[in-house]
Design a protein around this nucleic acid. Structure first.
Lengths: 192, 192
DNA sequence: CTGCTACGAACTAACGTTCGTTAGGCAAAT
DNA sequence: ATTTGCCTAACGAACGTTAGTTCGTAGCAG
């Protein structure tokens, strides 16, 4: 990908995240780039092409991250903490893409959609595996793995809805709080 | 609202939830109702009118539920469990509306959008209040109230993404699991 | 250093389609 | 007699996209 294409992609993403993919027109994107709509087609095959690249680049990042974590030999708590940390880092460092990735992937069509959900399954499975490891090790409560992984991922992904780069929590602090919450819950343990 | 309007609203919602509000045309809705597009305008002022009614009806339900819970004199754990239970019930009993409510409210414009986010704040504040109560009572960990409320709500709302009415978990079971998870976390307490 | 070629990146103009919506009418129900 | 619920027809605007062109510049042969 040329430098210019990357630049246009990034700017397009910052426009797309505002109103969502479906509600944003090619003309909207072009206007905020001070370009003619047609000029975008020198760089991208179609509007969906932009969505596709965005979603797959993010999916690749997440897939890689959770794979890395599972390849390292740690105990489950460390694995989970690291997976959450990496996940939060990817989200916060690519906030525009992340928003599009989370909200708009449903607008993909045909094989793109199929391949995307497949990729998504892979990294969700990665989280399930971490939970599984924890149960095997006897340090996580016996629980519905699928349910737990979904709940963890939802808390993590929801960050994009409220995270502000200039807020008072950085990515690492968010990851730490979130890990504590997920591992120990809200209730004070009166036995400790 | 007339019976017919209610009926058309429900059917519209089941269409809208599939591809999302912005990607669904009035003609799409009409087609699946075996109607002419223009006929919809005998019942609704505009396409956005359908979205508006959907979002506000759901917001009202949630607002009412969390208000009820906070008015009842219970301890914080009971309050939270009840709030989650009511929330899950509303989500699962109105799955189409819930999906639109959660995914598509951003497509509201003008004062509708302003009023909606205000309502949303009210019930999010209701959750923060429950967390606050728990901290005051000394039964919840000292924590970032806003952060905790957001995390709780994200887990609860994410249910709409995977819940299937004919799945093997009913609303009450989901609420129970979710409450346990949120209250006690994933980690086994070796002191108990 | 000059002149030619190739190409990237933008443009103008326009295509056919779909969009949300309105106007006006007609038949059945109240 | 009025209202309800739907129709046909059509409006103007916006949509994604294509075709064809221009302009600047980088690479290279003479």
């Amino acid at each position: 990908m040329t430098e210019r294409k990357r630049e246009i992609l990034a700017l397009s993403q910052s426009v797309l995240k505002e109103k969502g993919y479906a509600a944003t027109s090619v003309r909207d994107i072009a206007k905020s780039l001070d370009m003619e709509p047609a000029s975008l087609y020198s760089h991208f095959k179609s509007k969906e092409d932009i969505l596709k690249i965005t979603c797959f680049e993010m999916a690749d990042k997440f897939e890689l991250a959770v794979k890395e974590v599972n390849d390292i030999y740690f105990n489950a708590e460390e694995k989970l903490r690291m997976a959450i940390k990496l996940h939060v880092e990817i989200l916060t460092q690519n906030l525009d893409s992340a928003l599009i990735f989370i909200r708009d992937w449903r607008n993909l069509t045909g094989t793109s959609l199929t391949q995307f959900t497949a990729k998504r399954n892979v990294y969700e499975e990665g989280f399930r595996e971490i939970v599984h490891t924890g149960i095997d090790e006897g340090i996580f409560n016996e629980t519905d793995k699928k349910f737990a992984a979904l709940t963890i991922l939802s808390s993590v992904n929801w960050i994009v809805e409220w995270y502000k780069p200039d807020g008072n929590l950085n990515a690492e602090q968010i990851a730490h709080k979130l890990s504590n919450f997920i591992l120990s819950g809200l209730k004070k343990d009166i036995n400790k």
